[in-house]
Write a protein that binds this DNA or RNA. Structure first.
Lengths: 335, 335
DNA sequence: CTGAAAGCGCTTACAG
DNA sequence: CTGAAAGCGCTTACAG
């Protein structure tokens, strides 16, 4: 349409007959501007379609108006849901979100963090990781705000957002107990690694509360995959006293357990109940549809973004915060 | 560790005993620097951990070193695979990638494009959309490079990257014919809307080539969902002369068709074969595992990023390019 | 092969 | 309530 060159604050100022100072202030609202002047300037901005250059603004303010998310696997639907939640909030506040993948294998995380810090990203969300303290400290000392997903508050390591996973698993086991299942097995990913650990805690806690035994032969540790579920189910289903229910640390494991149960001729949930965790898309696509616990990934993302944005317009440091999000039981066909 | 303040090009220059001009040039390689000086400067950069401020650099160069991807649904695994492919390439060239969601319903796309353009994003990839010509033109006229995913080259609308979908569907139908299926139905999303349209073309083309009839009663249009697949399958399976194979426009439809077939007592693939398209994760998790065609989403993303990066260091405009990516048949249990 | 200096487009003390 | 001017940290003609 118009001829050449982006329009800049100077163009707006002269078209409105004011100084660039005033234009800047109607934009930021950081000092009063008379109603008449304001109206005139806003009019010109609108008419010319002026948008401040983010680089110029960033150079002055030392802010990039950008949030970052670091996850081990960008194609994992759980992580994309987190990203979607962050974006929604960020965009509404005129912040952009970049999501970066740093696979668990190898030293990708420090490199990605360095990248984001070099880019002066204002706030960074780090997914559940084997992140070392010094990786995370680099973020904080560089001046970026930090939110960790999972774990607990630690001095100098920013804020935390996490789901109530122990409680979620408790709820699920209680659901099984309520439906008459009494010999309940557990298939985990790897012992001690999150998010399996907290889920295992919930399992044990619920059994103890219900006065049910926690039998060693009913607990198997494999991997967070379908194949892990197949293997694990073979183990626990062949226990001396077999279980009537199998609780799995995530949905993929549960889908694998379903394979094994089907292959061995069990009817699910009549002969054996099987449950998952996370509520990935496949959980409801599989047959029988998986009873599972919804992991509030989207809300985790939006909470993290809100936290970061709050921090970013704090003038003084403020107390560290840990936000715990509720789970939700999704009863379907498999239990 | 060290006390206060990020280190800047000036610090490097004085520590190395050279001018900032020289530091800048060893960084960019845009003019020769003596080996000795270069070594000294690189040493200081390394030791001080200097990283140029992207805002300052961007203000001078009018480049943000950022690529954008716009998709209708950020949680769709097909789109995240595209994003992952872009990122991989972008990061290797020191570019960041931002992926933005602009849902199909409502006028989200123009707003998101405006955002990205205002941000001076260097190159933008727009997913398959009902994008109007003027939305896309805004990108090009603002000076950003544009790649569209799907469709064909059009003057003033940047480059195109797409998968060979017609060919992919042909291949799939040929696979069925080769296995002895001869009465092949089609369930599509909505007539005329992509990506269903090209896939339908491939279906028809393959049948014609094989000398097989294209019967109206064997084609159903519903929606790109599992429920759509259930409905569509009910229709085609009740045809006067029922099909022995059902080709679906995507995996979700196929999973719905599987539901209907199972409920009606058909054995898959013995009584009826069922196929999907895309190869989403659930395609191999479902039982029987879905025979489908892999949509090379990751490669689409990396090709688009490469194209953008090429454009970005072109000095003169250059001819528009259309890149077509091969499909891959994934034969599994359902056909 | 190297440097001094202008300038990218903003925001924000400082001044009135 | 408003403006003139400095300066954020780079890159790049211009000059030698």
């Amino acid at each position: 349409m118009s001829g050449g060159g982006r329009i800049k604050i100077n163009d707006v100022a002269s078209a409105a007959g004011v100084s660039v100072t005033t234009v800047s202030h109607v934009l930021s609202g950081r000092r009063p501007v008379s109603a008449a002047t304001r109206a005139r300037v806003e009019d010109v901005i609108e008419r010319l379609g002026y948008q401040a250059d983010p680089s110029a603004r960033g150079l002055r303010t030392q802010r990039t108006h950008t949030l970052g998310l670091v996850v081990p696997d960008i194609t994992n639907p759980f992580n994309t849901a987190i990203a979607a939640g962050m974006q929604e909030i960020a965009l509404a506040h005129d912040y952009l979100t970049v999501v970066c993948e740093a696979p668990m294998d190898g030293p990708h995380l420090p490199a990605v963090i360095r990248q984001l810090v070099a880019r002066r990203i204002d706030g960074i969300v780090v997914g559940r990781y084997g992140a070392t303290r010094s990786d995370l400290e680099r973020i904080v000392t560089s001046g970026s705000k930090l939110v960790r997903l999972g774990g607990h508050l630690e001095p100098g390591l920013g804020d935390v957002v996490r789901a109530a996973e122990t409680e979620g698993m408790c709820d699920l086991v209680n659901h099984l107990v309520g439906r008459g299942y009494g010999r309940i097995a557990f298939i985990g990913g790897a012992p001690g690694v999150e998010p399996g650990q907290e889920r295992f805690l919930g399992y044990r806690q619920a059994l103890e509360t219900a006065g049910l035994p926690v039998a060693d032969e009913l607990v198997a540790w494999t991997g967070f995959t379908r194949e892990g579920g197949r293997l694990g189910a073979r183990t626990v289903l062949n226990a001396r006293t077999p279980p009537d229910a199998v609780v799995c640390a995530n949905d993929l494991i549960a889908i694998g357990a379903l394979d094994t149960a089907r292959a061995a001729g069990y009817r699910v949930p009549d002969d054996v109940a099987i449950t998952g965790y996370d509520d990935i898309e496949a959980a409801s696509l599989v047959s029988p549809a998986l009873t599972t616990v919804l992991n509030p990934a989207r809300e985790i993302g939006s909470s993290a973004a809100r936290l970061l944005l709050d921090r970013l317009d704090e003038t003084s440091p403020g107390t560290a915060r840990e936000i715990v999000l509720a789970h939700r039981l999704m009863p379907r066909e498999s239990a």
